[in-house]
Simulated scan of single mutants.
Amino acid sequence: MLKRTPEIDFACDAVREAARLARRVQAEMVTDALTKGDKSPVTVGDFASQAVVARRLETALPGALLVGEESAADLREESGAATLEQVLKFVRESLPDATPAQVCEWIDCGASDWEADAWPDAYWTLDPIDGTKGFLRGDQYAVALGLIQGGEVQIGVLGCPELAVTTEGLRPERGGAGALLVAARGQGTWVQPIDGAGDDWRRLSVSDESDPTRTRMLRSVEKGHTNLGAIDHLGLAMGIAAEPVGMDSQAKYAVLAAGGGEMIVRLLSEDRPDYQEKIWDQAAGSIVVEEAGGRVTDLEGRPLDFGYGRTLAGNRGVVATNAHLHEDALAGLREIHA
């Protein structure tokens, strides 16, 4: 059974609260009348989620550090006043006495940055809403929180409001109960409904598929996040015959951990060859997969190193598998890059 600690309790409670908040933002702000390209709902959700998580961290674990995706700089400008008012409205549903100044301060707790030689050994990293397009479409998105110590993820929690917990694992379900996953180093990966409580956790395991041709590849719906042409070539190199599974956000890692697929690959996009993965895009998802029995490395097979700052500067791309197919994936990557 999952051994509860103050850190695990904080992370689960904070992500649960942030996921519920994101749902409310989506329900109230994402409408049919939303102009194409208008990302204001996810902007409000990002800011409100980060503010609430930062405040809960400050209260639960005083002195703990947070590295988040958002900064309140724009909200402090006159042009950001209307957005700040919307953010404040949602934050006050969790923290009724919050002021505009406090909201900005909480958000900026996650904007911390340090020189490479002064980067802290231990810190939390947050993606307040991972999967912008999925959030706006009503498809998959996630709240992702991870604790990093010594360059390695120790705790990861994913809140996936559009995934349902079933007896077979996890499956997409719009407007359902959602799924909350927690992984702790050496303790496995566990899941319960977002609105669950107590000890009704169920342990997850990756699939035992070892035939490369049967690999179900979990692929981003958002094309700008990876090199889809190269992924097609990888599929050919591995002889994959199974249909891919399209899914946004770190919800893919949740489904992989639950046995609903065998591989995720983040290749470098052709128009961004020097791109470095952000730590908050990989921290929680990577440990969720690893503790379910999977394997996560960069494209050369090296472990992900979270000790370089806000990006995975020591790694190129990401490949996550059920472990049984990892060497096949790396061999295929070497072939297409030969």
Rank of each mutant, 00 (worst) to 15 (best):
residue 56 R to Q: 15
residue 50 Q to H: 08
residue 256 L to Q: 02
residue 167 T to L: 12
residue 27 A to D: 13
residue 49 S to C: 12
residue 293 G to W: 12
residue 73 A to R: 06
residue 149 Q to P: 02
residue 189 T to M: 07
residue 264 I to L: 01
residue 196 G to M: 11
residue 160 C to F: 13
residue 33 A to Q: 12
residue 113 D to Q: 14
residue 332 G to N: 06
residue 310 R to W: 13
residue 229 G to D: 12
residue 134 G to Y: 10
residue 68 G to L: 03
residue 209 E to L: 05
residue 185 R to K: 09
residue 182 V to L: 11
residue 188 G to E: 04
residue 46 D to C: 00
residue 96 P to T: 08
residue 283 A to F: 09
residue 53 V to L: 06
residue 227 N to W: 04
residue 170 L to N: 10
residue 177 A to Y: 10
residue 250 Q to G: 12
residue 155 I to V: 15
residue 120 P to W: 11
residue 329 A to Y: 03
residue 61 L to R: 07
residue 76 R to E: 11
residue 276 Q to R: 15
residue 335 E to S: 15
residue 230 A to F: 09
residue 260 G to D: 01
residue 258 A to K: 06
residue 1 M to Y: 08
residue 85 E to P: 02
residue 133 K to E: 14
residue 40 S to K: 13
residue 214 R to L: 04
residue 285 G to R: 08
residue 58 E to N: 08
residue 5 T to K: 08
residue 117 D to V: 10
residue 283 A to T: 00
residue 59 T to L: 13
residue 70 E to M: 00
residue 77 E to T: 15
residue 285 G to V: 04
residue 103 V to D: 07
residue 44 V to T: 12
residue 57 L to G: 07
residue 19 A to G: 14
residue 328 D to N: 08
residue 105 E to V: 10
residue 259 G to L: 02
residue 215 T to C: 13
residue 158 L to Q: 05
residue 114 W to F: 07
residue 315 N to C: 09
residue 35 T to Y: 09
residue 102 Q to L: 14
residue 268 L to C: 14
residue 213 T to M: 04
residue 63 G to C: 01
residue 39 K to C: 11
residue 4 R to G: 01
residue 68 G to H: 06
residue 230 A to K: 14
residue 311 T to A: 12
residue 255 V to E: 01
residue 136 L to M: 04
residue 334 R to P: 02
residue 291 E to S: 05
residue 185 R to L: 06
residue 227 N to I: 05
residue 287 I to F: 11
residue 226 T to C: 03
residue 52 V to C: 04
residue 266 R to C: 06
residue 157 V to I: 07
residue 191 V to R: 02
residue 31 T to R: 15
residue 240 I to R: 08
residue 230 A to M: 12
residue 135 F to V: 08
residue 115 E to Q: 09
residue 206 V to L: 02
residue 160 C to M: 09
residue 109 C to T: 04
residue 216 R to N: 04
residue 80 G to C: 11
residue 174 R to T: 13
residue 202 R to Y: 05
residue 84 L to Y: 13
residue 304 L to M: 07
residue 59 T to S: 09
residue 54 A to S: 15
residue 162 E to W: 09
residue 60 A to H: 06
residue 82 A to M: 14
residue 171 R to W: 11
residue 292 A to H: 09
residue 89 K to P: 04
residue 116 A to I: 11
residue 235 G to T: 00
residue 306 F to W: 06
residue 178 G to M: 15
residue 155 I to A: 04
residue 233 H to V: 01
residue 89 K to N: 00
residue 325 L to V: 01
residue 274 D to K: 12
residue 250 Q to I: 07
residue 322 N to P: 03
residue 247 M to L: 15
residue 177 A to N: 12
residue 64 A to L: 02
residue 177 A to E: 14
residue 203 R to C: 04
residue 241 A to W: 10
residue 150 G to Y: 11
residue 321 T to A: 03
residue 66 L to F: 02
residue 56 R to P: 03
residue 138 G to Y: 04
residue 84 L to T: 07
residue 130 D to W: 12
residue 129 I to A: 13
residue 11 A to N: 03
residue 78 E to N: 14
residue 203 R to D: 07
residue 203 R to N: 10
residue 205 S to Q: 10
residue 122 A to T: 15
residue 189 T to C: 07
residue 138 G to S: 03
residue 111 A to F: 09
residue 241 A to I: 09
residue 116 A to L: 13
residue 262 E to P: 03
residue 218 L to Y: 05
residue 280 W to M: 00
residue 144 A to E: 01
residue 231 I to C: 05
residue 171 R to K: 15
residue 253 Y to D: 00
residue 338 A to E: 14
residue 59 T to D: 10
residue 336 I to L: 14
residue 96 P to S: 12
